[in-house]
């Protein structure tokens, strides 16, 4: 095989693995979320389909597939159809530059489950999530329904505001790693857990966590959907598989920010315990640490949903612009000065 064909084949296999894992993760997450929320609320949740209800996502999929596709008469047909596609496409695109687990040796070469290790990795994710808002805005506008439009408006304002804080929270990590590549940022956190960015850049972690929750519109920042206020917000008029696509985009976005959280702030695949062996019987243990971190933070998002009420719209805007962004900006300044004066920063 020519090197180009080999490269294309490897990339293709990676795409299949990542997209497959994300779609599988999405369906499992819907079940985990419903069961966990139910336990938090003294209910049982879906427990009838298969052992512990684990087959519920399949039943849901079949149900959604056979439901009638309804489109409002006054809807803008093509935009209405395009919106879920845009949402899923941007959600999947962002996952292309994220490393899932450590590099490992196999088939005589070093491999890593990461589709494209590009130089501007973090900025690429930032750009694609910025485009992700179009899916929601289009959905809200095209349905020609007042509740949908309100949801779409809220969503565009919210994502726009919290994107700034999200980007700001990455600045100090990029400075410290001197690179936009996610792999480089993970590598700065090798060694003991006190090297993790959550310790070194604690204010940035707080800002990232809150802004990311708002960015994926999870409770307490789920105003674009706000079912007690605006029915279901931007996806009020969506049913059947189109609704499923919108849900899928939301869950994939949530998985993306969680994987980023583990990679950027919690050492990625580094165990954080000095002297821990790299692999056990040829199996890279990094996958275990990484998987545990991702699973824990996915659970935290569900936990938050079962715990917190929703923000009011004006509180949301106040918090984003007057608390998160100033905190992030001050931390960038503070870190830059400390880095040069105390740490080993550039002179």
């Amino acid at each position: 095989m020519t090197p180009l064909a080999e490269e294309l084949l490897v990339t293709f296999v990676k795409i299949v693995i990542v997209v497959g894992a994300l779609l599988g993760g999405f369906s499992v997450m819907t079940w985990v979320e419903r069961r966990s929320l139910a336990f938090m609320q003294y209910r049982l949740g879906p427990n009838r389909t298969g052992p512990f209800g684990i087959l519920q996502p399949i039943a849901d999929g079949i149900k959604l597939f056979f439901k009638e596709e309804v489109m409002p008469v006054a809807a803008n047909k093509w935009t209405f159809l395009a919106a879920p596609v845009v949402a899923v496409a941007t959600a999947l695109l962002a996952t292309a530059v994220i490393p899932y687990g450590p590099p490992f040796e196999a088939f005589g070469r070093t491999l890593q489950i990461q589709i494209a290790d590009i130089e501007v990795g973090l900025l690429f994710i930032f750009a694609v999530t910025a485009l992700g808002v179009y899916g929601v805005v289009l959905a809200g506008w095209a349905a020609n329904n007042k509740y949908s439009l309100l949801g779409g408006l809220r969503s565009s304002a919210q994502m726009f505001s919290y994107e700034l804080a999200l980007g700001f929270s990455w600045v100090t990590l990029i400075l410290a790693a001197r690179s936009f590549r996610i792999n480089d940022i993970v590598d700065t956190q090798a060694g003991g857990f006190w090297h993790w960015n959550v310790v070194v850049h604690f204010p940035a972690f707080i800002v990232y966590f809150l802004a990311a929750t708002a960015e994926v519109a999870r409770i307490p920042f789920d105003l674009p959907e706000g079912e007690s206020e605006i029915v279901a917000g931007f996806h009020t008029e969506y049913a059947s598989m189109r609704f499923a696509l919108i849900q899928m985009a939301e869950y994939i976005n949530m998985i993306t920010v969680t994987v980023l959280l583990a990679n950027l702030f919690f050492g990625g695949w580094h165990s954080g315990v000095p002297g821990m062996p790299e692999s056990l019987g040829g199996f890279p243990l990094g996958f275990v640490w990484w998987g545990l971190k991702v699973a824990f933070f996915l659970f935290v998002f569900i936990w938050l949903r079962g715990t917190l009420p929703r923000f009011r719209y004006d509180q949301l805007m106040q918090f984003g612009w007057k608390v998160l962004i100033p905190v992030a900006a001050v931390w960038v300044m503070t870190f830059a000065v400390l880095w040069v004066v105390v740490g080993g920063g550039p002179r």
Partner: peptide, 26 residues
Amino acid sequence: SPFIAVLQVIVYAGAIMVLFLFVLML
């Protein structure tokens, strides 16, 4: 120049056009 490419998307497609759409919808 991936940097310029990504900036183009962030600034124009991601930020400015979202504001345009926001005003058009409003």
